[in-house]
Structure formats: structure tokens, C-alpha cells
Amino acid sequence: MIITTRKQFTIEEYHRLIELGFFTADERLELIRGDIITMSPKRTAHSVCNSLLFGELYVLLKDKAVVRGQEPILIPPNSEPEPDVVIAQKREDNYLSSHPFPSEILLLIEIADSTLIFDRDVKLPLYAEAGIMDFWIVNLRDKQLETYTQPYQLSKGKYNYRSQQIYLPDDIINIPHFTNISFVLKPFFM
């Protein structure tokens, strides 16, 4: 009988593999709970929504926060996901010394069509466990925005968000931490 063991990587090991050229430049990868995951190809609606949303948030928040699009965040010891949009606190070095940590993230957004189940079942608990206070899923399948706040531990090793709310395309939403800044959702749902 052959026994196999799955190798779980730390962030440092993952970065070392990148430095050594283990992956090609065009590979889209994420480190999730120690596993190196190939990211799903983006469909047209996902790309358009991402571009529009990033552009809108950048214009609304450019002097108030850092808006990052499809860039890594760090969740030690073994996760480096690449959310579609992150609004992070301003930092003097503009995150040159490291990607944002959960304590620096004001809002994290995933845009989901083919990735909806993965975003809900894998990423949502990861973000809740990391203490990311505000998480949104732009659900392109059902044409709705799902907002999640107040992370908590449901049971040992299981995390979720206490508050979950659905917004429809005609709704106007306030941006967490910037309650005086809002926008209409309709343009993001084709």
C-alpha cells in the first residue's frame, strides 16, 4: 500500500517557488489554506464588471483609501488569495513592503459567475476566519450583491459572517467605512 501526503505550502514557500520560476508568468494562481489553486478563467461579464467596479471605486475613494484590483492579500500563515477588488487603508509605502493584511482591509470584493460556489464555500470562511470585517460577492448569476459583515466562529474550525444582506441592481449601496459615499449597482449587472 502506498501512502501519499499532500504538501501544504506556507506563504514564504509559495513566494520561493515563484522566485525560482516554478510557475510561468501567465499562470493565474492563488495560495488558499496551503494549496496552490489555479484560478478560473474570466468570462467577459466578469471582466467587464470588474473593470467597471474597480473604476467606480477608484474614482470615489482615490484620496481616501487604496483601491487594488486583482492583487494579492496576505492571510498568514498559508493563504495569499487574489480578490477581484480590495479597498485597503492608506499606507505610506503604498503596500510596497507587503501586500495588505486582513487588519488593513476595509472591504474585500469577489465577482462571481462560475466561481460562486468556491467564493461562498472556500473564500468566505477564509475571509471570516481572518477577521475581514466586510466582504461582498457580486453574484453575476443571480444579478445581486451579497454583503457579509461581522465575522464569527460558528464552531471549531468553521467560520462565517453573522450578517448577510442581498442588494438588487436598482439598489444604492454605501461603501463600508465611507457611509457618505454610495453608488448604484445597476451598471455592474449586464
Rank of each mutant, 00 (worst) to 15 (best):
M1P: 00
M1E: 13
R6I: 01
K7E: 02
K7T: 09
F9V: 06
F9I: 07
F9P: 10
I11E: 08
I11C: 08
R16H: 08
L17S: 03
L17M: 10
E19F: 02
F22E: 14
F22Q: 12
F23A: 03
I32C: 06
G34K: 05
D35L: 04
I36E: 00
I36N: 00
S40T: 13
S40K: 06
T44H: 09
A45L: 13
N50M: 10
N50G: 12
N50T: 13
L53T: 15
L53H: 14
E56T: 15
V59K: 08
V59A: 10
V59P: 01
L61I: 14
L61Q: 03
K62R: 15
K62F: 02
V67F: 07
R68C: 11
Q70A: 15
Q70G: 09
E71V: 09
I73H: 13
I75K: 13
P77L: 01
P83D: 01
V85G: 04
V85N: 05
V86P: 01
R91E: 04
D93Y: 07
Y95Q: 02
L96T: 11
S97C: 02
S97D: 04
H99S: 14
P102M: 01
S103V: 04
S103P: 00
I105C: 01
I105D: 03
L108T: 08
I109D: 09
E110C: 05
E110I: 11
D113W: 01
S114H: 05
T115L: 00
T115C: 00
T115G: 04
L116W: 04
I117M: 12
R120F: 06
D121L: 03
V122W: 00
L126E: 02
L126A: 02
A130I: 09
I132H: 00
D134C: 14
D134A: 15
L140N: 10
K143M: 10
K143N: 15
L145M: 05
T147P: 08
Y148W: 06
Y148Q: 07
T149I: 09
K156V: 15
G157I: 10
Y159L: 03
N160I: 00
S163L: 15
S163Y: 14
I166H: 09
L168R: 05
D171I: 12
D171E: 10
D171Y: 11
N174W: 02
I175M: 07
P176C: 12
P176Y: 08
H177D: 10
T179W: 07
I181E: 07
I181G: 03
F183T: 12
L185W: 09
K186W: 11
P187F: 13
M190K: 08
